[in-house]
Simulated assay, not measured.
Amino acid sequence: MCYTVKSIDDVRRLVIATRGLSGLSDAPTLIDKACRRMFELVGADMVAVALYDGADTLVVGASEGLEIDLSGIRLPRGCGLGWRALQRSMPTTTGNCAADAEHLDDLVEAVIPEDIRGLAAVPLTFNDLWLGVLYAGTRGRRVSPRTTLLMNEFGASLAPLLVTAVRADHAERLAVEEERQRIAQQLHDTAGQLLFQISMSAKEIQQCARDDPETAVEAARSIETAAAEASTYLREAMHSLMPADEALPVTMRRDVAVFSNRTGITTELVTLGTPRHAGAEVEGVVLSALREGLHNVEKHAGARAVLVSLAYQSHQLSLAIEDDGKGLPPDFDLNPVPGREAGLGIPGLLQRVTGAGGVLRIGNNDDGGTSLRVTLPLVACA
């Protein structure tokens, strides 16, 4: 007998069940939500969704209605009700899965202790492409034809969404792999060559340290320069691997830890608000301000503790560096000194901050130490 959806209520329930699934491009999230929606739709005692792995196995991705979670159960080809439905390309049911030997598999053995007896398996396909199987189970009765029909209709709506999600996931993985290869090549062409240069300069020092001190000194300077450049390349490569929203706080946390370990000054970083990408210019200015501020603490403050705070607000990003040191000298002037190169120290930082549309403030705080604050607009620079 052929069943069709005639009930207005069934049509309405199908529309509600599939609503909101089309916006999900992540396959695991889509399967998890679809499983919950199917459970609400069909009125069975349990449901599950198993995905075809492209080889010889169905893997349960989500389940609802049972005390145990069926996720992760693997069903080898040709084993159980699900494979029979998939190979026949039609819904398949049993009234007593516990007594039906040909339908036994790990999924059936998992649901039997919870008194599931009626079981239906509906193939999930798209243009003859195997995607997986939808399951529904009942206690003490056979799964009704109406339930099987609703599962079939639900699967027809889910299949193209699942194909799109899987393809998006594949494209994302491919993009990640291509980016990894690009970074690996960049490291080989930059940091790799610099490290080779360091090695050769070190050998040169060993060979001429006694007889030609000037050449040895020049080789040592070459090592210092190459090591600094290699460090920069490696830092940029690691920075590019981080999610954009997290890159700035992660980089700052690393810089703060390095500073604290090197100087012995207790230094903490506090992040306020929700981190988000602020743009290369703004984040570059923030990092410059952090490093210049910590450098001045180490060189001038005589501090025992430093608090660094990074605050994300609706339209601005703020950095504050507070120390408990001896404070600013009486003759401190934030404005550039005539004749001094603008790119150095605080004058250079002031130039970068104002160039990005921000404000730099430096003064004494309530604890007698120094406070450096930078405020930058997010709207103009993000």
Rank of each mutant, 00 (worst) to 15 (best):
T147I: 03
T147N: 05
T147D: 08
L149H: 15
L150E: 01
F154C: 03
F154Y: 00
A156P: 02
S157I: 00
A159R: 05
A159Y: 06
L162G: 01
L162A: 00
T164N: 13
T164K: 13
T164P: 11
A165P: 11
V166S: 09
V166G: 00
R167V: 10
A168L: 11
A168C: 15
A168I: 10
D169L: 13
D169A: 15
H170L: 11
A171F: 10
E172M: 13
R173N: 14
R173I: 06
A175M: 00
A175Q: 03
V176N: 12
V176D: 09
V176C: 03
V176Y: 03
E179S: 01
E179P: 00
R180G: 09
R182P: 05
A184V: 10
A184F: 12
Q185C: 14
Q185M: 08
Q186M: 13
L187V: 08
L187W: 05
H188A: 14
H188V: 06
D189K: 10
T190E: 10
T190N: 07
Q193C: 06
L194P: 04
L194C: 04
L195Y: 11
L195N: 09
Q197N: 04
M200A: 15
S201W: 15
S201E: 15
K203V: 09
K203P: 02
Q206H: 12
Q206S: 15
Q206K: 12
C208H: 10
A209R: 03
A209M: 02
R210C: 02
R210D: 12
D211E: 03
D212I: 13
T215Q: 06
V217K: 01
E218M: 04
A220N: 02
A220S: 15
R221A: 04
I223S: 01
E224T: 08
E224A: 14
A226M: 03
A227K: 06
A227W: 11
A227C: 12
A228L: 14
E229G: 06
E229N: 05
E229M: 15
A230K: 05
A230D: 04
S231G: 12
Y233V: 08
Y233T: 05
R235M: 01
A237P: 02
A237R: 14
M238W: 09
H239V: 06
H239I: 05
S240A: 08
S240M: 05
M242F: 14
P243Q: 07
D245P: 07
E246R: 12
E246Y: 09
L248F: 11
P249N: 13
V250I: 13
T251V: 15
T251W: 13
D255M: 07
D255P: 08
V256Y: 03
S260H: 00
S260W: 07
T263W: 11
T263K: 10
T263N: 13
T263R: 11
G264E: 04
I265H: 10
I265Y: 02
T266R: 07
V270K: 14
T271F: 08
T271P: 02
T271N: 01
T274R: 02
P275T: 10
